[in-house]
Design a binder for these strands. Structure first.
Lengths: 347, 347
DNA sequence: TTGAAAGCGCTAACAC
DNA sequence: GTGTTAGCGCTTTCAA
């Protein structure tokens, strides 16, 4: 069970370390005889290079830039920032520097400006949260032109030029919500699907979730739910929802396609005798408050913190240890209720 | 943003690398003046040692032994083995050798025998799956006496001498199941709690889950479920359950505290008009089959594969990079239905 | 085509 | 007390 090093191989083959290295990396300039001998030896002993040593040699400092919506403007993004910060700490001692940049999630100009700055820095990789689809495509092209690796989280779209994507299957996510809804409301009732602030956000997300949700329910054999979709602005939510709920039995379940589900729960809370079930997204403190008192029945955890952290991890291990980066990593769609949320929130 | 090395510090402080190292590791034999100067400098520039270099120096081969129930005897343990095997592959190139040993989960002698063999090998750490509690306590003492690190997964008990534990909060796990059950069966019905093969397994697990389950339901304000507990052997299951189910409306929900929930689902499937809800544990193929056709309503994922993998990861990063090992790592309690299982099964 | 040698950053033994 | 030095395993340059 001895650990063989290049030196061992060299001695066994009667050549120098340099030659072994040339064989290992197929750098040519090796005689047929030596090639043959070393190759066989390598196979025989199942040589595994010491990745630590290899990495040490490569003393380059790697540089990753992260482009995210500013959490001070939309706190939804705070978990992503937290995930990135964890990664910063973890990889600092490994010679990987990570810089965070924030844009205004309602302002494409700020997005462009930041990417321009980053381009000039020529980092080794950039992680972007592409909430502006069209604009992202453009920016990614520029990064690719300079051979800068581009990673994304959170975006379900096929973006060309992306090296790796970490996220969730959003259609499936809608199906998960639908199955849950099916289980907790009586057959044949009416379900409301609410998209909140669609114009200001990446509406593709909401549409895919809706698609999955409908798709699941429409194919059911023995029940026949009525589905109503509303795309609303926060400002209009109160009036609209109040109107609907004052008409009793009109709605039995509400599926909110975003993390703003607490604002729906807050209104529904005023109708305690209606027993309306609510399913939505993300473990915001506000959402968990309603989850705890059963005003929200289920939350689906998109795990933005882990998405961001994992994405950087993949890049770091690629730089340090040449570990292959999976092109797409789909995280599980966590179902969260009042009893298991803290397993997902605390770390 | 320069990366400072020991050499840099030495030059800045006007001392040698050796002295800096002595300060860093508090090895004494440093004059007050030098100590003061170097210490301040280190703080000033927030020196971070290069962990790769440090690790390379330490060329020792670490050795971890894993003691698990034989998956050929009880396939429940296969995921753990898979997790360990993943870790073996991953850390092979980092100078960490991991050996797997299997005991018969129904034979304490085999457990002792294997631990005896391992003790003689004097590994750096051992990961045991302590399904025999009393016996494990004994064995752990012996490891501790030889300064061998002991890690465990899957066991909720306070075992003294354990360095780290990776697992789940089993009482909370029962509460999760209870909350789910509450949502999917009508109020005030009867719920059956089934422990399968309790004598042959670690019954503590089942008891804790039951405790959490009951605890949740008993404190509900507006409903009043009747709870019945059965501890059964596989062989008796069919007769007992048939008896119960032939008495209509006797049972509305069944909570199975182990992964053998499929064997309950199989029997309940013969009573299609009863609409009995079933909740159980673990993503065995057999369970997923019933989950898919809604015969099982929810499974709780204990994620044995990840438990094992994570545990070894923690040990490896401790050996390689001196990363602190958390004494206890509680994994989230994943709720799984027919729509999100594949996020947890495929990797 | 090949071997020798330097060096990545850190540690520790050894000489002064 | 302190500085020097060798060396961890691998890569790469340079001279032969």
């Amino acid at each position: 069970m001895k650990k063989y090093t290049i030196k061992d191989i060299a001695e066994l083959a009667g050549v120098s370390k340099g030659t072994v290295d040339r064989v290992l990396h197929k750098r040519g300039k090796v005689s047929a005889a030596a090639l043959e001998k070393v190759t066989r030896l390598l196979e025989e002993i199942d040589y595994q290079p010491n990745l630590i040593a290899r990495s040490l040699k490569n003393t380059k400092d790697y540089h990753i830039c992260v482009v995210q919506p500013d959490p001070e403007i939309d706190p939804y993004w705070q978990p992503c920032v937290d995930g990135v910060n964890d990664a910063i700490k973890e990889y600092k001692s490994f010679g990987i520097t990570i810089d965070s940049y924030f844009f205004n999630h309602a302002d494409t100009d700020s997005f462009f400006k930041i990417n321009k700055t980053i381009l000039q820095q020529r980092p080794d990789a950039v992680l972007i949260t592409p909430i502006f689809h069209k604009e992202s495509v453009e920016v990614i092209k520029q990064y690719n032109a300079k051979n800068i690796i581009v990673s994304t989280i959170n975006d379900p779209l096929e973006l060309n030029g992306i090296t790796n994507f970490v996220g969730q299957d959003l259609i499936q996510s809608g199906r998960v919500a639908a199955r849950l809804m099916e289980m907790i409301i009586p057959k044949n009732r009416t379900i409301l699907i609410i998209h909140l602030d669609e114009v200001f956000n990446n509406s593709i997300h909401m549409q895919l979730k809706e698609k999955g949700f409908k798709n699941y329910l429409e194919r059911l054999q023995h029940s026949n739910f009525t589905l109503k979709t509303c795309s609303l602005q926060q400002a209009d939510l109160y009036d609209k929802l109040n109107g609907l709920l004052n008409n009793p039995n009109s709605v039995s379940g509400i599926f909110v396609t975003t993390s703003k589900v607490y604002s729906v729960a807050k209104i529904v809370d005023n109708f305690p005798n209606l027993d309306i079930k609510i399913i939505g997204y993300d473990l915001l403190d506000e959402n968990i408050k309603y989850l705890k008192n059963n005003a929200i029945d289920f939350l689906i955890n998109q795990n933005p913190k882990h998405q961001a952290y994992l994405c950087i991890t993949q890049l770091a291990e690629y730089f340090l240890f040449d570990k292959k980066i999976p092109r797409e990593k789909l995280l599980p769609i966590d179902i969260v209720n009042s009893e298991n949320f803290d397993g997902y929130t605390k770390n």
